[in-house]
Design a protein around this nucleic acid. Structure first.
Lengths: 212, 212, 212, 212
DNA sequence: GATGAATGAGGGTTCATTCAT
DNA sequence: AATGAATGAACCCTCATTCAT
């Protein structure tokens, strides 16, 4: 532990501790002294690395979101088809959540509060993350594989929101009934192919599409 | 106003005041005394109607959610086709949000915190609300208009999440770029027909569907 | 006690407690909770009557100084001759200090700090008090009983300073060697007649000295 | 600068830095780290030269006061007549203040606090300084030029206090209205000749006044 | 000697809740 | 039932001091 912890530096120790404590208690019920204890530093040390309690949360957001952006970026770079990219985004997002449950909880639950109630905070990184999907959609429209009447600004939020809510279920449920793989498949498909059962009216071409 | 306010009773006065204050400040930054002032009652009076500050929020959730359930129930009862019901649900949800912005903000932003960090709270009413979509999906599958491999428990959350995120955008954005009507159309369609542009491969039947 | 304390109100209770605690510990070493205990109120109660710790000190200054101004005003109104007024001022000042040792200590020791280091504080009342002597000097010059080359703005500060330093000695010394009466006599005379021994020039009598 | 600063030694660097910082912020609001920064040393270095924060202030007092004593001593040694010595003391005191405004502020404002609230501190040097005037008075009485009923212990404090208050005005006022020379004249005269206008008794001349 | 990162005790202040009126 | 003054526990943050390097 000594080596590993030391190398990461106090800043990261505190961030990791904060992730745990915020996940467990929520931002407002978390005590700075608890984060300090979890990080094995003195209370005062926190304030050598962060301006105040708010700043811990905001830094946590920005740093972690940056990592997520990178990883999602890599994942979607590996496939070409925009619809496959959507699937890749969904998969990567859910897998990251699975790997970092505590962090996911904090992102999920505290990010909204913060963006609204912490004065100076603009969730820049979050918007960047969102734009990853937005860009996929735009490329898909250009490539002709996504319907041209889709509005990327709305679609990106819809997709993110769907994922986010799944995550919430994941995070809050003690025993999720469905595997992550199933969820990836389901959610990707909702967005890619919709809910409509096209096989049911196999004799006639897809009216909703041709009508558009 | 005087008459109207009096008739509604102190309990409702306080709930309405809480909606305003929580929307403006967030639950944790809201002061009980501010709710009291907004409701034109004394601080102590709050405690004649609610056990504590948490209880105000929880009561607010349950009562308001009950109203929403009723109204959505009525809206989806008016149409028969499950896919039309999905559209009706989406429309009704977004319209209610438009009508009650403050309430929507509180629901949006505080509900998650609460379900996780308030000890005894189970968001029963919220789950009931969610099940309205779940039931639609199930009926759709039975009726054969929704693909049989759709898992209702996942679909309902995905749909709700997409709506919820849109709402967040509405609520937080000063000037939303897209009308509510556009949003209803877009979101309904994502779920009903997906993103895929089927007209692009018009010569051959929908491979993704026939393959499934 | 109950009646007496109750009648004075919490505000005054706190001020009196603060006088005691500030006198004993000094402003910066005094704890708000100690003032609360001394005043027999809860810590929080202090903040119903004062904005913060600074405000207790400032209020204390202004209120007490106002009382002092009134009493000195009355004392000097009783005599006519400006030189007698100087003596009356000196006497009244020293007597008040004797009566309210704790208060005097606080005024003495904390007023200077405050006027310099508390942002918004201007010791208006103190300046009013100072002007009582200033006015006496001016009247004395007009009446021709005080030398016309005396600058009131300097004289008033010199007189106050002399008194103030005497007070410091009184306040800090455990056993002052000289009675207050002696001090009044001495200090009044320094200012009225100076230190010079006019009797030494025996060939020309100095009435003021021989009369003494 | 580099050479000069180095030569003076860290101890003096710290004292000089402390004078500046205490003058600007006051003892209690001054931070040790700020003194360290001003002195261009590390925080920890302070504690190699001083026991604690209090000790910085006390050392500052004693060392600087010692210098003042020497310089006043030299100034009053140059004149013989006790009344001229009083004038010389007043002049030297005010001139030193003029030259070392920051130091004067600290002496003025912090000395009182300290003598009362710092446990082990006895302002020995200050009392020595005060005694310089006391001795002048005693000599004046013996020589017959000062009235025999003057009590030196009181007179010395009165004179010092008058000077001190003038200084306060000097130090706190942005633009003093009166020159130092005027002030020296005025204050010396208050003590030497008092306020009484002896010329008003025009039938019997008063040498001291007519000489002016 | 010099450094400055780390410490952790301490205290001003807030605010949900109570209860005498 | 209604009030709102009073309560006091709780907590963020500061900063004098230490000590490993």
């Amino acid at each position: 532990m000594a080596v590993k912890e030391k190398d990461r530096g106090k800043h990261d120790q505190i961030i990791e501790a904060a992730v745990k404590v915020f996940a467990k208690k929520g931002f407002y019920n978390a005590k700075v002294s608890e984060i300090a204890r979890e990080a094995s530093v003195a209370d005062g040390t926190i304030y050598l690395y962060f301006k105040n309690k708010d700043d811990i949360l905001i830094s946590l957001f920005e740093e972690k979101m940056q990592l997520w952006i990178q990883r999602v970026d890599e994942a979607i770079a590996k496939v070409d088809d925009p619809l496959d990219k959507v699937r890749a985004f969904v998969a990567q997002h859910l897998f990251m959540i699975e790997e970092h449950k505590h962090l996911a909880e904090v992102m999920q639950i505290e990010l909204r509060q913060s963006s609204k109630f912490m004065r100076r905070y603009v969730p820049v990184k979050f918007l960047e993350y969102l734009d990853l999907i937005g860009t996929i959609i735009e490329e898909g429209i250009e490539a002709g594989v996504i319907r041209p009447d889709v509005i990327p600004a709305i679609a990106k939020r819809a997709i993110f929101g769907a994922l986010d809510e799944m995550l919430l279920y994941w995070v809050l449920a003690k025993k999720p009934k469905y595997s992550l793989e199933q969820s990836v498949e389901q959610i990707s498909r909702f967005f890619i192919d919709g809910l409509r059962n096209r096989n049911a009216d196999s004799d006639r071409p897809d009216s909703s599409q041709s009508a558009a």
